Amino acid sequence: MRETIGKYLDTIDALKLEERMLCHNTLILGEVGSGKTNLACRIRNYVIDMNVPTLYMDFNNSHEEDVELRYKDEHFNYIRFEESDAFDEAFKKLVAEKKHIYMAVDPNFFARKRDEKSKLSQIISQQELLDNYYYFFHDIENLNGFYTQFEDFLLYMLSFANLQKYGFTFLAQPHETFENPHLKLLFSFLFLGKCSNANYYNTALLKTLKKNKFLYQYRTAYPTLLFNEIVSSIVKIDEYVLEE
């Protein structure tokens, strides 16, 4: 089990992933070179070890040869999204077999109008996926107008009738993207379950963190009348190297 992913910098404790993270949203913020992909890879390894299939959506639309080697393990199944019968058949087969999926996606496939639901959104909001898969959305910065282009799927995802069995991991840039108050509200809700404070994410602090260091925040597990207490710590993530 690969649950130990780093250490706390304010205590001597190791940073370990817990099973309950499979049922909560996870947000990773960082600039290029900050180590966010390394952290996502470590989370993916843990999810795989927990026998939960993963759907990793790469909005850089990367070619297979450009995907980082640490993702190319025995669980790596690359596919590029397109609106075709061939894609539908190949994707359906992967899902039926509960394979781990690395899907390259061109964000232009999302609907441009709010009253339309794109085929891409229809594909990734299939109930079978929502019930069984752990989602990764990589490089949301590439989605120009993310909160409008992606609106059809987000509204479905946030419906109380469709709360996911497993979590969502978001990787995004904190600078220009997160100066947008609409995005701060959106991600505050997805990550913490509330959206009362548009300035919750302190991008000034995030900008100062060195590679593989993150502000780690989580809700405590014990129940309260309102939202559980939020705990914050600075952590350092171990560099993951693909085993030969």
Rank of each mutant, 00 (worst) to 15 (best):
R114W: 07
Y102P: 02
E18R: 06
N144Q: 09
K72Y: 00
K92S: 11
K194S: 11
D88L: 07
A104W: 01
P107M: 05
C41M: 12
E176H: 08
I43F: 03
Q149C: 02
M103T: 05
F109C: 02
P53R: 12
K92P: 00
D152G: 13
V231T: 10
S84L: 03
K194V: 09
F146H: 00
L39K: 03
G193I: 09
L55N: 01
P174H: 14
S125L: 15
Q217L: 15
Q173P: 00
Y102G: 05
F227W: 02
F191L: 05
N25P: 10
L129M: 10
L15D: 14
Y201W: 12
K93L: 10
R112M: 14
R42A: 06
E68A: 10
D85K: 07
Y134S: 04
V47E: 07
Y156T: 13
S34T: 03
Y166K: 06
Y156E: 12
L27E: 00
A14C: 14
T169S: 08
T11G: 05
L226Y: 06
L171M: 15
L215A: 08
Y218F: 13
V231W: 08
Y8S: 02
E239D: 05
D10N: 07
K194M: 12
E19H: 11
F187R: 04
Y134M: 06
N162P: 04
Y166A: 02
N228W: 01
P174K: 11
T177V: 13
L130N: 06
P53T: 08
E19L: 14
V95T: 08
S188N: 11
K165C: 12
F189G: 04
N77M: 03
I101H: 05
V32H: 10
N132I: 04
K210E: 12
L215Y: 05
